[in-house]
Simulated assay, not measured.
Amino acid sequence: MDNLSQRSGLRLASIKQSGSVIAAYSIVVIMFFIGMAIMDGFASSNTILSLLVLASFVGIAAIGQNLVILLGGIDMSLPYMITLGNLMVPFLNSHHVPTVFSILIVLAIAVVVGAINGMLSSWLKLHPLIITLGVGYIVNGILYFVTQGIPLGEPPVFLEHLAALNGHVFGIPVPPVVFIWFALAALVVWMLRGTRLGRQIYAVGANPKAAELVLIKRVKVWTYTYVASAVLAAMAGMLLSGFSGGGSFGIGDPYLFVTVGAVAIGGTSLLGGAGGYMGTLAGVLILTEINMILTGLNMDASQQKILYGIIVLIMIAIYGRELHIKNRL
């Protein structure tokens, strides 16, 4: 009977997750028609490409946030890692460091930061909110020390081409950054569904104690996942520098709540153990559509932040009131 009830619980959780993803994509379509009704030219190819490019930066960073939330954690250092990638590549470029080495240096720093986040959170068994926020502040302080608080340099032409609205991929008029986002999305969906690491992430998020009993190394899973989150956030920051033409302190700040909001809207439980990136991708598109509509209505940044905050709070209220998946099986 226990096995039967467990299988029934898993089927019900799967059905509920599928319903959440369908609902999220339905909202994408609804928001698009609302945009068409409110703004002239919302359905034009230029606007759609702009929407996809803006969404790609959020979407790449949200992959890592999605993974750590599936573990039952959160990555508060994500904005600082975006700022790191955004500032350091132009800064190193201004000091004549070759582009390849600049990118490798940033990615190496991201690996170290992610490993620290994951290992400390799992070893000390403190809530990752505390660990990642503290590590993020340290990263930000080091950035101020290295740059003296003054963003320097321009991004390499390579990054500008990747983020260009008029870019092409294999002759197709799609900006390369959008192609990169979709390729990474396909990779993470496959990883979660078809690999051992993906199954381990769900297992640890659903029931850490049970996962340890079946010899899943919780520290290793947390470390790998937080490394992925830091690396993806740094990648998003580097691509942002190519889009904006330079680095900027605080550029990553809005991405924390936007990524968490996208994950929640996409149906991933904020308690961990249930969800996936297909829904998060829809959440990213929804929030980007809202942002473009609000911008078209001449709403200022503070009003947009208020709306994002309301959305996140509503979704946390909805998903945070659910029983954890281990108590539903």
Rank of each mutant, 00 (worst) to 15 (best):
4 L>N: 10
8 S>M: 11
9 G>T: 10
11 R>V: 10
15 I>G: 03
20 S>A: 07
25 Y>S: 11
26 S>W: 04
31 M>W: 12
32 F>H: 14
41 G>P: 07
42 F>A: 05
44 S>K: 09
46 N>I: 13
47 T>A: 12
47 T>R: 08
49 L>H: 13
51 L>R: 06
52 L>M: 13
52 L>K: 12
54 L>A: 12
55 A>M: 01
56 S>E: 15
57 F>V: 03
57 F>I: 06
58 V>M: 15
59 G>T: 05
59 G>D: 01
63 I>R: 03
64 G>D: 13
66 N>Y: 09
66 N>S: 11
68 V>E: 08
68 V>G: 12
69 I>A: 07
72 G>P: 08
72 G>V: 09
73 G>N: 11
76 M>A: 11
80 Y>A: 13
83 T>E: 11
85 G>A: 02
86 N>Y: 13
87 L>K: 07
93 N>D: 07
97 V>A: 06
99 T>S: 15
102 S>M: 12
104 L>D: 05
106 V>F: 15
107 L>E: 12
107 L>Y: 15
108 A>N: 13
109 I>L: 07
111 V>R: 09
117 N>H: 12
118 G>R: 14
119 M>A: 15
120 L>M: 12
121 S>F: 13
122 S>P: 15
129 L>G: 07
131 I>K: 13
131 I>T: 14
133 L>Y: 07
134 G>N: 02
134 G>A: 01
135 V>M: 03
135 V>K: 00
138 I>R: 04
140 N>Y: 10
140 N>V: 07
143 L>N: 01
144 Y>H: 03
148 Q>T: 09
149 G>M: 08
152 L>R: 11
156 P>K: 06
159 L>T: 04
160 E>T: 04
160 E>G: 15
161 H>A: 06
161 H>R: 15
162 L>K: 07
164 A>V: 11
164 A>C: 13
168 H>E: 14
168 H>P: 05
169 V>A: 05
169 V>M: 12
173 P>M: 05
174 V>S: 10
174 V>F: 07
176 P>K: 02
178 V>Y: 01
183 A>T: 07
185 A>L: 04
187 L>D: 09
188 V>C: 06
189 V>G: 11
194 G>C: 15
198 G>I: 05
198 G>C: 10
202 Y>G: 14
204 V>C: 14
206 A>L: 08
207 N>Q: 05
211 A>N: 09
211 A>I: 09
213 L>P: 06
214 V>E: 10
214 V>N: 15
216 I>W: 04
218 R>C: 05
222 W>Q: 04
224 Y>P: 05
228 A>W: 05
235 M>A: 07
237 G>L: 01
242 G>F: 00
245 G>N: 01
245 G>W: 02
249 F>S: 00
254 P>Y: 00
264 A>Q: 04
268 T>M: 15
270 L>D: 13
271 L>I: 15
275 G>Q: 11
276 G>R: 10
287 L>H: 05
288 T>A: 09
291 N>I: 08
291 N>K: 06
292 M>Q: 09
293 I>D: 06
293 I>A: 03
295 T>G: 01
297 L>C: 03
297 L>I: 10
304 Q>N: 00
305 K>A: 00
306 I>V: 01
308 Y>D: 00
311 I>K: 02
312 V>F: 01
313 L>I: 09
314 I>F: 10
322 E>W: 11
324 H>Q: 12
325 I>S: 07
325 I>Y: 08
327 N>D: 14
